[in-house]
């Protein structure tokens, strides 16, 4: 679905991405991890067209995203911190987004309903707590039933109940054959959801394989431990 071909990104002297090659396929859930500043955010932003790579190309469904914008129809994006105009009401926000993405796809209002946004629709964004705003972001990401979902720290700041609802939703979408990319620092969440692991370190892809393979090769049952193993291996190599 998404092919990343020799993508580099330089911010002044900093190499955020170094000629990365990567393929994301549908029906899989990718856990995109790596330490702070490793380049994973840059990678996500490159896919979304927010960051323009200094070199290489990104293909979505075989088509280059350079100078294109309609491909973003296919992507549902949940940002790490959802901040919205203060005086916008929840209802207005959803209406506005529906306006922007005037696609014919049927709407997936499951999360919208789960979180009872219909009752809150007159609330202004600045009155909402951080967690509620995250719920709004999540509901918006799934609303248009997109084939690709990119979730940046989706569970951060959510209450446990909401986390469970969201996780259910992700698994359901995975079964529906969607491509899902998640970054998170909460390994237990990833363990439940992800099929594949992409580990980014200093602009390079250190690891890209299924989580099962990783667990086998490290002899660890839990993802967290396996990754610690991976990190150690990595530092030894360095």
């Amino acid at each position: 679905m998404i092919s990343i071909r020799k993508v580099s990104k330089k911010f002044n002297k900093l190499h955020a991405l170094r000629e990365i090659d990567l393929d994301f396929e549908k029906g899989k859930v990718y856990a995109l991890i790596g330490p702070n500043g490793s380049g994973k955010t840059t990678l996500i932003k490159s896919i979304l067209g927010l960051v323009i790579p200094s070199g290489g190309d990104i293909l979505v469904d075989g088509e280059s995203i350079q100078k294109s914008w309609l491909y973003r129809e296919k992507i549902g994006y949940m940002p790490q911190t959802g901040r919205y105009p203060d005086n916008l009401q929840i209802g207005q926000l959803f209406e506005m987004m529906k306006n922007i993405r005037s696609s014919n796809q049927s709407l997936d209002e499951e999360l919208y309903n789960f979180f009872d946004f219909a009752l809150l629709s007159n609330k202004r964004m600045h009155t909402l707590s951080g967690g509620t705003r995250q719920k709004v972001s999540a509901a918006l990401a799934f609303l248009f039933n997109p084939p690709i979902l990119i979730l940046d720290e989706p569970t951060a700041g959510l209450d446990p109940l909401a986390v469970e609802i969201l996780k259910e939703k992700i698994l359901q979408q995975k079964k529906a054959g969607k491509l899902i990319i998640i970054t998170s620092h909460i390994m237990s969440d990833l363990d439940d959801l992800a099929t594949d692991l992409v580990y980014v370190y200093e602009g390079n892809i250190i690891y890209n394989d299924t989580i099962d393979t990783l667990k086998k090769s490290t002899n660890e049952q839990r993802l967290g431990k396996a990754i610690v193993h991976l990190m150690n291996q990595n530092s030894v190599q360095q």
Binding site: L70, Y71, P79, R83, P85, S137
Partner: peptide
Amino acid sequence: NSYEFTELMLAQPLRR
């Protein structure tokens, strides 16, 4: 102040 929202908008199928 609306930087994050701008970011979200840019992640939508809209021209810059």
